[in-house]
């Protein structure tokens, strides 16, 4: 026992002081568009090689062809970064990559044209997204709750900033998290890691609870195959309002490499309204903490407050 105490006391503090450190050199993050143009031949190769359908070549309404990248579908397989590197795509070292809207994960670049439609990672061109069939109006469940609350001034729920203020008032200091796993378990391991002494999400007021009854936010991992549709819905219904849903990982966001099969594993969005999307396969523990901070309304102008 004495030896054990001695061992523990002589250890240095493991908890990372640097918050949301970017990924190190040579570490593969999510891909992002650099803004460089790309030839049609290369774009087609990439689209064919991407296992998750995250890279696609689309024709826009005005007839221009674009390469569209959906970071919410990307499984970080490395094909477009290591196997078929191009100037148009690079690895994104940023770990703060969660978004509130599904379409913020999609960006595109015109083929053989230097104009980038969007700054990468920021909401893109509508015509392009409609073509890709991604729903853009994924307002989360919390939104509905605020709309239903009649004592709120109308403009409060209309502006995003005001809505964030409200969320942060309720959840900003601490939040109880219920994790529901419906996938391959790597996202679960990273959520577990986010709670370990290195990342220690408890210090930000985020704690994992064992029942939906006293949870504020549902953290869902995995593509939600058919057998989990009903359990997940029941779990959500057992939570008291206001409640939030966070989709963790590309399977939860889009179904990943297994979408559109007989098992209907098409992501959380097919079953529940989603408030925050954390891309990655699996997302880095920092990304998970960042996404939860976003759900808490603690993250404004990109910084943890």
């Amino acid at each position: 026992m004495i030896r054990l105490l001695n061992y523990l006391i002589t250890r240095k503090i493991a908890t990372s002081k640097a918050l949301f450190a970017p990924l190190g050199d040579g570490v593969r993050g999510l891909p992002m568009l650099t803004g460089e143009s790309i030839s049609e031949a290369e774009a087609v190769e990439l689209a064919e090689g991407c296992p998750a359908g995250a890279i696609r070549v689309l024709e826009k309404e005005d007839g221009r062809q674009v390469l569209e990248m959906d970071r919410g579908a990307c499984t970080t397989c490395g094909f477009c970064l290591d196997v078929y590197p191009t100037a148009a795509i690079k690895s994104d070292p940023n770990t703060m990559i969660a978004t509130r809207k599904r379409d913020q994960l999609i960006s595109s670049v015109a083929l053989n044209d230097t104009s980038l439609d969007t700054a990468s990672g920021v909401a893109g061109d509508t015509a392009c997204k409609t073509a890709s069939g991604v729903k853009t109006d994924t307002a989360g469940g919390v939104h509905e709750f605020f709309e239903a609350a009649d004592n709120l001034p109308q403009d409060a729920i209309e502006s995003d900033l005001a809505r964030e203020n409200l969320i942060s008032k309720i959840f900003g200091r601490s939040i109880a998290i219920r994790v529901v796993s419906t996938g391959c378990s790597s996202c679960d391991l990273e959520i577990g890691a986010a709670g370990n002494p290195i990342f220690d999400m408890e210090r930000f007021g985020m704690h994992v609870v064992a029942s939906p009854r006293f949870a504020d936010v549902l953290l869902v991992t995995g593509p939600v195959p058919k057998a989990m549709h009903e359990p997940l819905r029941l779990c959500y219904e057992a939570m008291s309002e206001p409640r939030l849903v966070v989709a963790v990982g590309s399977c939860a966001i889009s179904g990943g490499v297994l979408k559109d099969s007989y098992a209907q594993a098409n992501g959380v969005g097919a079953v529940l309204p989603v408030d925050v999307f954390i891309p990655g396969c699996p997302p880095h523990p920092w990304s998970i903490i960042d996404g939860i901070a976003m759900a808490m309304g603690r993250k404004r102008q990109g910084r943890l407050k």
Binding site: T75, C77, G183, C184, D188, P225, S261, Y262, A263, A265
Partner: peptide, 27 residues
């Protein structure tokens, strides 16, 4: 509960993509 149809999907994709489906079997 987490049956996602891996064995079916893996024969639907070309060889170059199969390894990613195989990796998704267990994280």
């Amino acid at each position: 509960y987490v049956h996602r149809g891996v064995e079916k999907r893996i024969v639907e994709v070309p060889l170059s993509r199969m390894r990613f489906v195989a990796e998704s079997a267990a994280g």
